[in-house]
């Protein structure tokens, strides 16, 4: 891409920004409260899924543990910002400075992300030395550990009970801003030296090692950056919905975010974003069917659970029929016919 103009170089990011901006603008103009909610939820998912993509897409290693950092970020922010009256009573295990104080929203968000990032670096250090499949399983152990710890640490997390009354400051525009930053960061990483080395190692680990790529180190870098944004996604999630429980951040969330990545195409940033848009749309449609609708005087309603079954089947179909996902691993390229997209 040596001779490309600056605009051309950052085009994949601009195109995705534009796509999201159009969606938000349309929702703002024509949508009601419900559509706003749906779009905000989807934008939070963009942060998480693009975060996930930073590790999975570049390294080719599946992670089933990344959603843990969503939980870690969310709870860290909740401890700092939520429930000044209840905290001293029912979160008695918190250190005093958290138990008796409430902090501003923005510094809390930042410190929560930093907390998730540091934990990710520590946890990732041993795991990233494992081979691909073993690493995937080990990330699963991470998910399980975080779930067990947060799910049982009643005096700090309220166990599996919901934490309610979290300040809700995340609207569509906040979520859009964060999604835009995440997309830019993901693209910057994939164009960086570390990102390119990791992508080379994904293609051919032996060859990459031969030219001096330190695969565990590059994986750890990607893993840590990835966890930072997933942690941010967790913070946004908590302050968007206003209620969390640890089971929000377990297998179903892991599945949905991975499904978004795979359906969009896990080898490209565009795939991560498109996957969220496509699957969020499908989910919303199925939710409407679940609520029931009327066609020609006939009321149609599907039982709860159909949504998940359909999504599972859609994902299997994509894997069989279009293993590269909807984007086939391509980025949005500069609209000129002569340049071939790089994967």
């Amino acid at each position: 891409m040596a001779g490309a103009s600056p605009l051309e170089r950052i085009w994949p990011v601009i195109a995705l920004w534009a796509l999201l901006l159009v969606i938000v603008a349309l929702a703002e103009l024509f949508g009601g409260g419900i559509l706003n909610r749906v779009v905000t939820d989807a934008l939070v998912k963009v942060v998480v899924v693009v975060g996930l993509y930073i590790f999975v897409g570049n390294s080719g290693v599946m992670s089933f543990g990344s959603i843990s950092f969503m939980a870690i970020g969310a709870y860290a922010s909740v401890w700092q910002t939520c429930c000044p009256k209840l905290k001293p009573i029912n979160m008695s295990g918190l250190p005093d400075f958290l138990r008796y104080n409430t902090f501003d929203l923005f510094p809390s968000a930042v410190s929560s992300v930093v907390f998730a990032t540091i934990l990710a670096a520590i946890i990732g250090f041993p795991i990233m030395r494992l081979s691909g499949i073993a690493a995937s399983i080990a990330t699963f152990a991470v998910l399980a550990i975080v779930n067990v710890v947060y799910g049982n640490w009643d005096r700090v997390t309220l166990g599996t009970n919901s934490v309610v009354g979290i300040p809700r400051y995340v609207d569509m525009w906040v979520a859009l801003g964060c999604a835009a930053i995440t997309i830019a960061a993901a693209y910057a990483y994939q164009c960086s030296r570390s990102g390119r080395s990791l992508r080379a190692a994904r293609q051919d680990e032996v060859a990459a090692k031969a030219v001096g790529v330190n695969v565990p180190r590059e994986r750890l870098i990607a893993w840590t950056i990835s966890a930072a944004f997933i942690g941010l996604g967790g913070v946004l999630y908590a302050h968007n919905i206003g209620v969390i429980t640890i089971n929000n951040f377990y297998l179903d969330m892991t599945f949905i975010t991975l499904a978004m990545l795979v359906i969009g195409g896990m080898k490209s940033l565009a795939g991560a974003v498109i996957g969220v848009v496509a699957l969020a749309t499908l989910q919303e449609l199925l939710r409407q069917v679940e609520l029931g609708f009327v066609v020609g005087g006939l009321s149609i309603k599907s039982p709860p659970g159909v949504q998940e079954v359909v999504i599972g089947i859609v994902m299997l179909l994509i894997l069989v029929l279009r293993p590269g996902g909807l984007t086939g691993g391509r980025e949005f390229s500069w609209p000129s016919p002569k340049r071939r997209p790089r994967s």
């Binding site: 599945f255 499904a259 998940e308 079954v309 999504i311 599972g312 089947i313 994902m315 894997l319």
Partner: peptide, 8 residues
Amino acid sequence: ALAYALQY
């Protein structure tokens, strides 16, 4: 994905 579908 299969596990998810079968569970539901």
